[in-house]
Design a protein around this nucleic acid. Structure first.
Lengths: 308, 308
DNA sequence: ATAATATCTCAGATATTCTGAGGTTACAGC
DNA sequence: GCTGTAACCTCAGAATATCTGAGATATTAT
């Protein structure tokens, strides 16, 4: 047998008011309900909590007072928990766990985090890198509050918010012949030596685009890191295709490269945020809002290569 | 809207097991009940606590885990409170508040307390002196756990335990003429100069006895303290009637007095314990038991004056 | 494909809690 | 002493909350 919270509140009221009737008024119920709760509590505890005087009210016994203190404490903690969770929902502090796939994340997430950190000093960020699948899985497992990923066959359980569409572009050394043009075509690209980004999904995705220009491809290298792809291009081993670019297009080695839109292709990927459906913490919502505002402004334009 | 304790337990179980079905098994209810509790909690908190995967179970979100910790803490405190109260009931420690009327209490209560204190070092005694009415009132008000009083027209709400019957006896100086006898009679007493203990109830009580021996009484003094009555007797101002006696019959002044049973009177008072009806703390019960054992043994015999 | 496993939904059953009426007890004022 | 008032007590029936059980649905594993 267990004593319900409601019963505890009634007992508390009775002990505090020293009167069943007064407690009943305070709790907006009839005295019977209070009396029943008292009876129940005494039965469960096996102890007399109050002495009852018919015309005067009830008087807590010494033990009743002790128990009352314990009940006060518990109920206060209950209330704190309840309002605390609501606070958690609405507060702009606490931990924000972000999983990301997009290789581009390091180019803009830190800036966003810095802004949020400055505005709300007690926010703690947890960044976790993964691939497009692992971050989705991590989201469903409760590992992340929000993920940054490429929305393509997304898990239907995930609620998504598109941030930016990144057209596929061509990457070539600054002194390459193609670099003279404003744009390139698929047919021009497929004649060159090619370097392929080899990551889950991405490989097939780029192959589809290239096969649109002919099937005789000269793939001279693959790499599973965008930074390596860029460096390979800068080293004049070949040209490549990518979707997003860091804000400055220098490689680690410092060599110059150019990013050219592809005139005759509408291919591209959508960079999206994903989160568990349902109501969100205010902190999460703020992050989402900040991402949208940021990527749909000039910062966003720096991260993609669009046609002129 | 408030979340019931039961719902909290279900949520806790669901979070811990990562499965509604498993939680349902653990709680011995159907999965529907668990799911309902989860829904309710999420609705009340306005926050998603778990992501649900149809064939895999449920996965706590990060906030879900946070909330879960809060719930764990609260439920543990609830359990502690519940078992704590039961412990309070059964433990032989804590505070024992004793109210007493009987002027004789200082003669034996300290000894009892010392024994209990030695056996259970964390018992704290609170002794409060009062008159026969005030201690009864104090008991009903929850001021005392137990009272020591004279059971005469007791409040019917008080549960009593008789300890000892104290016959009325005659008190006279050791060198008084009456002191030669083993017993005295009422007719002998009424011829002497009399000192009367003047306390509520007591006065009328002694008068009744005396009037039984004739109405021409020579009352030379009254006093409202037994110690003063004894000293007055020792000073040979007169003789008196009392019911209980301290273990040594020296007065503060060191004079000798004698205590003589009254042969032809069955008058006396019953010294009793009183306590609130209903189940008692073990500590209180032990005190009651100790009192009975003590006063019904040789210690008790020392406190009264019985006929030879 | 098929089986197994888990959640979802919802109507009806069950259990808990509350109300309301009538009764009892104790105190206070005349 | 009598009477009115203010409490508490009891209990049957009503209202509310909670649970069950059956069928549906979705996902994973074989």
């Amino acid at each position: 047998m267990t004593l319900s919270l409601r019963a505890l509140r009634y007992v508390q009221a009775a002990l505090q008011h020293g009167s069943i009737t007064a407690a009943a008024d305070a709790m907006h119920v009839t005295p019977s309900a209070i009396a029943a709760a008292l009876d129940q509590a005494e039965a469960i505890f096996g102890i007399t909590l109050v002495t009852r005087a018919r015309a005067k009210g009830v008087f807590p016994t010494l033990t009743g007072r002790d128990v009352g203190r314990g009940i006060d404490d518990l109920l206060e903690r209950y209330d704190t928990l309840m309002s605390g969770v609501s606070d958690l929902k609405s507060s702009l502090s606490g931990n924000l766990a972000i999983g990301y796939n997009a290789p581009i994340a390091p180019a803009f997430l830190p800036r966003l985090a810095a802004e949020m950190s400055a505005a709300h000093s007690d926010v703690v960020f947890t960044f976790t890198e993964g691939n497009n699948d692992s971050v989705q899985k991590g989201l469903m497992d409760g590992q992340f509050d929000v993920i940054l990923f490429v929305e393509e066959l997304p898990n239907p359980q995930i609620e998504t918010q598109p941030l930016i569409f990144a057209p596929t572009y061509c990457l070539c050394p600054a002194d390459h012949a193609l670099a003279q043009h404003e744009t390139v075509s698929v047919s021009q690209i497929v004649q060159e030596s090619l370097i392929l980004l080899d990551r889950p999904a991405a490989r097939g995705y780029y192959m589809d685009l290239l096969e649109q220009g002919g099937s005789d491809l000269r793939i001279v290298a693959t790499a599973n890191s965008t930074e390596m792809v860029r460096s390979l291009v800068a080293s004049r081993i070949g040209i490549s295709l990518l979707n997003m670019k860091p804000r400055d297009v220098l490689t680690y080695a410092g060599d110059q490269i150019r990013c050219l839109p592809i005139a005759d292709s509408t291919s591209g990927v959508t960079l999206s945020l994903g989160f568990a459906p349902g109501p969100k913490r205010r902190l999460v919502q703020m992050f989402v809002d900040n991402c949208m505002a940021s990527l749909q402004g000039p910062l966003g334009a720096d991260l993609i290569v669009s046609k002129p």
